[in-house]
């Protein structure tokens, strides 16, 4: 790598290296798989407990899922952060995007649950935004489609009260929006950047 370069070669080298840097994202599949499994579990538990006395029992599954997911995500994030061979600024953008989503989600829950309104349809609709944007930033089409599926499911959920249909819609959106893209992303990460 010591010979003189032409201006054209220099420019191509610069573009190629910047392109490589852009692809150096952290491994993210863990979060999609973790939250996908936990939230589907919480939704099924809520469906099974649909005839139980009203809250707090009915909402307990969501609290447990949120707590387990929060703890495991924090531990995983802290460990991964120390081991990442590269710090990509877009990782921070994705982190802030999901952080802002969690804040919006908590506000939505706080504004709906005390009035006995189901936050599920709005949360599903909101989930589409960070999922879609993460897919766009990573240039990973399954997540882009996943985000759109959340929007689609969220819209339909606004027009039905059928508990079974709501459960099926939410679980399907989670499965095809989080778990399937999560598995595909994991496979891609293993090829691009072995753990």
């Amino acid at each position: 790598m010591e010979r003189d370069m032409t201006p054209d070669e220099s420019l191509r080298l610069i573009e190629s290296m910047i392109g490589q840097a852009k692809k150096s994202f952290s491994r993210m599949s863990f979060y999609f798989l973790l939250w996908g499994v936990l939230l589907i579990g919480a939704m099924i538990a809520t469906y099974i407990m649909r005839d139980a006395p009203p809250s707090p029992v009915q909402g307990a599954a969501w609290g447990v899922a949120g707590l387990i997911g929060g703890i495991l995500s924090s531990i995983h994030g802290a460990r991964q952060g120390k081991r990442e061979p590269v710090n990509n600024p877009m990782d921070r953008v994705i982190g802030w995007l999901w952080g802002a989503f969690v804040i919006t989600l908590l506000i939505t829950i706080a504004c709906t649950v005390p009035h006995h309104r189901d936050p599920g349809p709005m949360i599903t609709l909101l989930t589409g935004l960070p999922t879609f944007m993460t897919g766009q930033i990573l240039r990973f089409r399954p997540l882009i489609i996943g985000g759109m599926l959340f929007w689609f499911a969220g819209i339909i959920m606004h027009f039905t009260d059928d508990v079974l249909l709501l459960t099926v819609l939410y679980c399907s959106a989670m499965f095809f929006g989080y778990i399937v893209p999560g598995l595909m992303l994991k496979r891609q990460e293993n090829v691009l950047r072995p753990a």
């Binding site: 790598m1 370069m5 220099s10 080298l13 610069i14 190629s16 290296m17 910047i18 490589q20 840097a21 852009k22 150096s24 061979p85 590269v86 710090n87 990509n88 600024p89 921070r92």
Partner: peptide, 13 residues
């Protein structure tokens, strides 16, 4: 040039 171009796109490596 490759090293500097790579570092332009990341915070640190």
């Amino acid at each position: 040039l490759a090293v500097v171009s790579l570092l332009v796109g990341v915070d640190s490596a």
